[in-house]
């Protein structure tokens, strides 16, 4: 099972570190990454593999969403199929 993680927030030191730290702790592998700074806002997108994840989906989601409070990064995680399904036949 794969998922797409997207995040937007003010750019600061250590944003990627915190996101990937959570993913590593849960044994989630990052397969693709893109990031850019748009008018001072950090925006990132990741494709991750959840097949060997050591927690359940909602725990991972809660932890990623808690980054909004911690470092001001608004993070969403959604299963990849929703994007594939809506954008291609």
């Amino acid at each position: 099972m794969k998922a797409v993680i997207t995040g937007v927030g003010m750019d600061k030191v250590g944003i990627f570190y915190r996101v990937t730290q959570i993913l590593a702790e849960k044994n989630v592998n990052v397969e693709d990454i893109s990031q850019t700074i748009l008018q001072g806002y950090f925006t990132m997108m990741m494709l991750v593999d959840l097949s060997r994840m050591t927690c359940d989906f909602s725990q991972l989601k809660d932890q990623l969403e808690s980054l909004e409070k911690e470092i001001g990064l608004s993070v969403r995680i959604q299963r990849e199929e929703i994007f594939n399904y809506m954008q291609s036949i």
């Binding site: 797409v4 397969e31 997108m45 494709l47 990849e80 929703i82 994007f83 594939n84 954008q87 291609s88």
Partner: peptide, 14 residues
């Protein structure tokens, strides 16, 4: 990976 634009479009729609 699905194109980035498509991902942003889906998220915007929602």
């Amino acid at each position: 990976m699905v194109l980035n634009n498509n991902i942003y479009e889906t998220i915007r729609m929602i």
